[in-house]
């Protein structure tokens, strides 16, 4: 590969055949992906799929077991400090410094990044405004709500004005208001040209934020694309959800395959994947099948995800 020595590669992250082993356990199995400058890139997958391990390798806190990985054109093992100086990390579990106040947390991280005080101070003020913690600057971290802690963690990750922001499940455990506030801030960062790498198992989060994503399952990347791409590839445009009596279910079973591209029989519902839900529903009613309830909705990444990784619980 002709990677020139220029300092600003178009691909901020390049992984080829990247592996992570913990003893016998294969946490990440030969994955290839590329994150381009300025995009929001997602790792989607169930718990234990290898998302966090991948993130930690990118963040230089976990050495790869094999394959190649370049982050901002550098090697995460031998140039860890140089890479870390240019990325921000929002970890899955908050690790704010609870012995310090909100402002002191940011001051300390500015010091860890060796940012001169005259640069750091105005930036801290700006970040506190950005994450709306003006009234809490002198509060200790402990009494803050979960949403506030997350926002402070995001502000902390931005203290070095990073080129690349790594967010590991940024909204897990937050209430809807707090999630939307975090999404809004992340969207603004994207507008400013910050490259975002996000892991999540929330489909709506991936659809809201990611330009492109990979789906990980059992340590491997199973598919890749933009959210609309993936929906087009693995689902139909719309999904018709029906609740039926047992009789109606039996009747439908004989004709369902002609009515929809794909049919999924769940214990409580039947899902019909179709281009136009209303037309399919009309056809069903015409054939005399009674429905308790019918819902036509747009197909989502959740449909894609469940199609690929299956419905059974992954343990």
């Amino acid at each position: 590969m002709a990677t020139s020595a220029s300092s600003e590669p178009e691909a901020l992250i390049q992984a080829e055949g990247l592996n992570k082993l913990f003893g016998e356990l294969v946490a990440v199995d030969a994955v290839d992906f590329e994150v381009r400058k300025g995009e929001a890139f997602g790792f989607l997958g169930p718990n234990g799929a290898g998302k966090t391990s991948t993130m930690r390798m990118i963040g230089c806190t976990s050495p790869p077991s094999g394959g190649t990985l370049r982050v901002i054109g550098m090697d995460p093992v031998s140039q860890a400090s140089e890479i870390k100086a240019r990325i921000g990390v929002v970890p899955q579990m908050d690790n704010l410094d609870i012995e310090l106040t909100v402002r002191e947390n940011l001051e300390m991280y500015a010091r860890y990044f060796d940012i001169p005080r005259d640069v750091a101070n105005p930036r801290i003020d700006e970040l506190i405004d950005f994450v709306q913690l003006q009234e809490k600057v002198d509060s200790k971290v402990e009494p803050l709500s979960g949403g506030m802690k997350r926002r402070l963690t995001i502000a902390r990750a931005l203290i070095n004005d990073p080129d690349l922001l790594l967010l590991d499940e940024p909204t897990t455990g937050l209430d809807p208001q707090a999630r939307h506030l975090v999404w809004d801030r992340l969207y603004r960062l994207k507008q400013r040209g910050v490259t975002l790498v996000i892991t999540t198992h929330y489909m709506d989060e991936a659809e809201q934020l990611c330009d492109r994503l990979v789906v990980m399952d059992k340590a491997k990347i199973v598919t890749e694309g933009s959210p609309p791409d993936l929906i087009a590839r693995y689902s139909t445009r719309e999904v018709l959800e029906l609740r039926l009596s047992d009789d109606a279910r039996e009747k439908l079973a004989t004709s369902a395959d002609d009515l929809a591209d794909r049919v999924e029989w769940l214990p409580d519902r039947v899902l019909l994947y179709t281009e136009t839900g209303d037309a399919t529903l009309a056809a069903i009613h015409e054939s005399g099948i009674q429905t308790y309830s019918a819902l036509v909705r747009r197909a989502t990444l959740e449909d894609v995800f469940l199609t690929i990784t299956g419905r059974s619980l992954i343990e």
Binding site: G59, T61, K84, N95, D97, Y109, Y112, D114, N160
Partner: peptide, 14 residues
């Protein structure tokens, strides 16, 4: 408990 170091090692501090 506080995981303070987990945060610090994401910065250039080793």
């Amino acid at each position: 408990w506080m995981r303070t170091y987990d945060g610090i090692i994401t910065t250039p501090v080793n």
